[in-house]
């Protein structure tokens, strides 16, 4: 028998520019660290196989599915969640405003993940065409919109940079 592994550790990361330090069960997923320790509940959980993308956040600027990452794996990193997104459109970013203008959301459950994925895309490709947008949102499932208006939302954001 091996020794009982260490069950709890104290970790710190930056979430939306604010230090977040908690003692957690080592198996705590990043999404639960964000939702249950930091009480930032805009990041959602829609599956358990990394397919739906409702939990998408940015880790050091890159879109990541936070249900697939242990909190301990991102110790010391910079996390951005939907609550950390803002911009010049009455406080909304261009992506958020694009979704509002183009009806890119209905029930809103997948929306934070979609916004984060789109934000990650525009950071590396500020002017993506429809095919590029569709391909890059491949990991985010929306059950309400049928995607066309999401694509239009991202195009709106590309055409109205912050």
């Amino acid at each position: 028998m091996t020794a009982t592994p260490q069950r709890h550790v104290e970790i710190e990361m930056s979430i939306n520019g604010v230090p977040a330090r908690h003692r957690v069960d080592v198996r705590t997923l990043l999404v639960h660290y964000i939702r249950e320790y930091e009480r930032l509940t805009g990041t959602h959980i829609g599956c358990d196989t990394s397919n739906c993308g409702a939990c998408t956040v940015l880790v050091d600027g890159e879109a990541v599915k936070s249900c697939t990452v242990l909190a301990v794996q991102v110790e010391g990193r910079e996390i951005t969640t939907i609550e950390g997104v803002s911009g010049s459109f009455n406080g909304l970013s261009a992506v958020q405003e694009g979704f509002r203008q183009c009806h890119g959301l209905q029930c809103g459950y997948c929306t934070p993940g979609m916004v984060m994925a789109a934000t990650g895309l525009l950071a590396v490709d500020p002017d993506p065409d429809e095919a590029t947008i569709r391909a890059n949102l491949e990991g985010n499932i929306c059950r309400c919109t049928g995607y066309q208006m999401i694509v239009e939302s991202v195009r709106w954001a590309a055409e109205h940079p912050d």
Binding site: T41, G42, I45, E83, L92, R100
Partner: peptide
Amino acid sequence: VLRKEDPRLLTGIGTFVDD
């Protein structure tokens, strides 16, 4: 007409049960 629902849902302050 643009939706009243959207600002809260787009900023992560909507309230779903597990929140």
